[in-house]
Design a protein around this nucleic acid. Structure first.
Lengths: 320, 320
DNA sequence: CTGTTAGCGCTTTCAG
DNA sequence: CTGAAAGCGCTAACAG
């Protein structure tokens, strides 16, 4: 392992000079700075971040906090992309990614506390939001930085998000404009995540504006024996539906097939959250791309920004 | 921050004694050891792991390596559960979880190298496997420990896995026994992940043994415009199919609906990887539960075991 | 602009 | 069984 000492020696300077040079301290002459840096890369120097953390009192790691078990399904397909985005930004800053994840809020809290006090992590990204969350309390009481991915529940909370309401509205407009939909069904799950609600609100207001007739179908929370039959029947009673919006891909797929089968025609459909599956596809299928990877990147930017309180990310409507 | 010094002081012993006591060093009398430990908990002592790592030369962190971008879709719904399992075990050992994730293998390799040389992480869990992987080369050349989640590609590689072959066989037997299936369709994706292949092999051998007629349908890799219609037609040509096995839930759902629609009856179906969705459901639907959370736990156990080379995890067949 | 030195919190010889 | 002291790699006064 090549240390800062080795470099100092080789460059015939003191360790402090070496340290400063490597950290771009302006007090070092440009000349020696560059010389030392080139020696460092030449020797394959890799700073020991544990030593750094020990002296700085602050880790180069960012903690990513997953939802506790009981709500972990929420944004599932998103997570990998989010992590990807977060980590690309972290790597640019020579930081690393730690995760906190547990089945219960209690365990999760312990986990986060351990990261704070044992690893000296002072920066967190929270992948869920709920009211009165003990984890958030902890973060605040420990005075560490965090940003939320999703809908903020408190004032003065830093976050990144999509404008789900706008997306809901635009999606409906899209259906109306491109497929001439005049009677649109909005399908959501029972659990009423914040983002679903926003999308519905956007959908509703746009429908009203455009004079589009709207239907609302809430799928039961728990698995239901004959869900598909129930949906089929529902559709059968509304045979002139000519557009569908669903809050996720999977639901989208089911409904899509059922409509084809039940109404005996293809109904234009727009869904959120294109999942990795490449199954839901067709001429009249669209989805709202939310760019989870970009959200991850934005989260890191906000986290390390001095001033920025939030970032609202763009979305697009795409053919599959 | 309460340090080991504070404890030593309060206990009227030297720091070295305190250190030894806290690390259960047998050279300390049981008596003082307990006394010091109780003082520590009383004072809410949390060891600084950066300092520990600095002296030990080895971190208390485990690196979890995600598949590079181009293969990340593979086990997607699994990941969160895996992380959950891994982390519960890590927390028991007072270890923390770091992740390496990147879009390209090259970036990923850099990421892992950074973890090894900058954070001194010497233990890794690899969430994918492919032949001649540079990341694996790196792990080996750096002499760090790792275990693989999935099919090992090299001899002498430590891993945890499901017996996918057995699972494929058992699943077919189940269909045959419980639903009296005599003509079964196996649906797989084009990308031919290792586990899919194993499941198919199991399926095939069991079918042969039981004298069950078998069909194989490989879904195209890329999205296809009228995939569902193609599948529908495929089914139409094999109208006496009386059992289906799919390698994942999503495909399962599509095929399930298509069969109902096309064949006008319910065909018993068994799928792998129950995803978080609660949509695929019915009297004649089963899935093979692989307990990803347990796999995560097992991975940690193998990683820290001196002797264990692998763990093969049980599966069960469940009603939804 | 650069060097000397102390010290971050912990473990581990080496001495008793 | 316990203590004193050195040192892990790095940064940051302080002093030139």
């Amino acid at each position: 392992m090549v240390t800062i000492r080795d470099i100092a020696e080789r460059a015939a300077v003191s360790v402090s000079t070496a340290s400063r040079a490597l950290n771009n301290n302006p007090r070092i002459s440009r000349e020696t700075r560059l010389r030392i840096q080139s020696i460092a890369t030449e020797m394959g120097y890799q700073p020991n971040y544990n030593a750094k953390t020990l002296t700085n009192g602050e880790a180069n790691a960012v903690g990513v906090i997953f939802p506790p078990g009981d709500m972990s399904t929420a944004a599932n397909p998103f997570f990998v992309d989010l992590l990807m985005g977060i980590n690309t930004q972290l790597r640019l800053r020579n930081a690393v990614l730690s995760v906190a994840i547990a089945n219960t809020t209690e365990e999760l809290t312990k986990n986060v506390l351990a990261l704070i006090s044992q690893s000296l992590i002072h920066h967190f990204i929270l992948l869920y939001s709920k009211a009165n969350d003990p984890v958030v309390e902890l973060l605040k009481s420990q005075g560490v930085q965090y940003v939320l991915v999703g809908d903020p529940t408190q004032d003065n909370e830093r976050y990144v998000n999509n404008n789900n309401r706008l997306a809901g509205a635009k999606a409906l407009e899209y259906l109306n404009r491109h497929f001439n939909s005049r009677h649109v069904l909005f399908v959501e799950s029972e659990m009423e995540q914040g983002f679903e609600k926003q999308r519905r609100l956007g959908f509703e207001s746009a429908a009203q504006q455009l004079g589009v007739k709207r239907e609302l179908l809430k799928l039961p929370d728990k698995a239901m024996q004959h869900l598909d039959q129930a949906v089929a029947q529902y559709l059968d009673n509304r045979r002139d539906i000519d557009g569908i919006m669903t809050t996720d891909d999977l639901i989208g797929m089911m409904v899509y097939q059922l409509t084809r089968q039940q109404l005996n025609r293809q109904v234009p459909l727009i869904s959120f959250n294109k999942s990795q599956s490449n199954i839901l596809i067709g001429d009249q299928v669209r989805f709202v791309e939310l760019y989870p990877q970009h959200m991850g990147e934005a989260a890191v930017r906000v986290l390390f920004s001095e001033t920025k309180q939030f970032e609202m990310l763009p979305f697009t409507i795409e053919k599959v």
